[in-house]
Design a protein around this nucleic acid. Sequence first.
DNA 1: CATCGCCCTCCCGTTGAATGGGATGGCGGT
DNA 2: ACCGCCATCCCATTCAACGGGAGGGCGATG
Lengths: 256, 256
Amino acid sequence: MARSDSGESVLERAVRIFEAFTPETTTLAVSEIARRAGLPLATASRLVAEMVRHGLLARDDDRRVRIGLRLWELASRASPTLSLRETAMPVMEQLQASIGHHTQLGVLDGDEVLFVERLSAEHAVINYTRIAARLPLHASSSGLVLLAYGSTTLQERVLAGPLPRYTPATVTGAEELRELLARVRRQGFVLCPGHIHADATGIAVPIRTADRQVAAAVSVIVPNDERARARLPALTAAARSIERRLRDDPAAPPSE
Amino acid sequence: MARSDSGESVLERAVRIFEAFTPETTTLAVSEIARRAGLPLATASRLVAEMVRHGLLARDDDRRVRIGLRLWELASRASPTLSLRETAMPVMEQLQASIGHHTQLGVLDGDEVLFVERLSAEHAVINYTRIAARLPLHASSSGLVLLAYGSTTLQERVLAGPLPRYTPATVTGAEELRELLARVRRQGFVLCPGHIHADATGIAVPIRTADRQVAAAVSVIVPNDERARARLPALTAAARSIERRLRDDPAAPPSE
DNA sequence: CATCGCCCTCCCGTTGAATGGGATGGCGGT
DNA sequence: ACCGCCATCCCATTCAACGGGAGGGCGATG
């Protein structure tokens, strides 16, 4: 009567349980969790109980389950990337206020950009979700910056892999992408007119740590018709300002 | 040759691995992790490898390990408390700017206050760490507010348990605490002169969701000599402003 | 007030995923 | 070439985890 299907670690299942939660459904019943994570009810119940014991999940007054703050606490306390986020925040807000469009702070995670901060304009071209969104490296301005300054193994992996098309303007050719990356390194910034959303242009610049490693990218999204390049000085100034704060702060230097 | 000491789930060990990381040591070698988490090297190595596969940990170019952004992503994407944090942030910053002292946003987690936002004054009475710090409920202003409006089972648990003393002013008597909580409910705020740091006074007010549940507490820390009560109007105004934003936002209503 | 439907937890015999001591293979310093 | 340290791999052993089903609670419906 034991494990019928095999090869599933507790950890794997725990992660699947976390993934069952979404911004729309922040609390779930155990049976819901079991359904979404594809687990037998008994297993889900036991695993949830244990996760609650460790603070990874929390229970409501009724028996519904939500994600525990412990998870966030563990992540925030000890991630250099997130202390970078804290350091950059005030500058990001200033930038957003002066530019009046979507302003984002993206870092490399896996083979994608993860946006750790995302300030939205009230009436903007595109409606973005708040934070913790991901985009592919080859089709977003931040992604291209992070890729251009990333390790060669990363570049080769991305160039070799499939390069999905989102709009007619998306760069999907390996050779074309290679040249674009070279240009990014030469210029120190990137302009992406309509690469991922047909009617929006992304502009991104790198943020470097004291040892010249690129740790993150700042980007803004403007409508295609605006003179995108005119935004560049403000963007570069913001990047410099964040870099200055990074050097002053006793924050660790994150590379990846 | 198997399990010599028993009764340790993978989850438990995974959490201990996370806890091995601190703000000071954001990256660790596997052997370090093994030492800190009290695990055999082989076990640590295998577990770390699996956690990396799931994005819970990340590896540097050298082989050192850091906490994966996936953890933060999972937590941020689906926690109502953290979207409350996002909503409250601008107001918190305004409050900090106008008051010029430590300004904090605390929520109930377990039987403690967890500060999800903490804006520090440059030259302040006490030097706080950035975020994700915890304080006991009975000895902090935010804690007292959260406790006063918390469930009776929570209150009984805290009143029954030990009430550690931090300063001569700390409330350590169960009866005394019970009366203080009643006063907090009557007044709608709390003043804590020197309860946890001898030379600082905390002031806290509750933040309520649309259904009148207390979801969080806003607090400021001022030196004892200042007229602490004079800060109250600004604090209340900030709380009201956050409540207004909560009602407007399509954010879930967190209670615990 | 029974009955039904749904949800959750506990029970318990079974078993394979996890374990950990030690061998193996790197890497850097001397 | 040798040593010290680190990390991964190997593999026989075994206990933590498994999951079907029983049992109990809760609310809605007839």
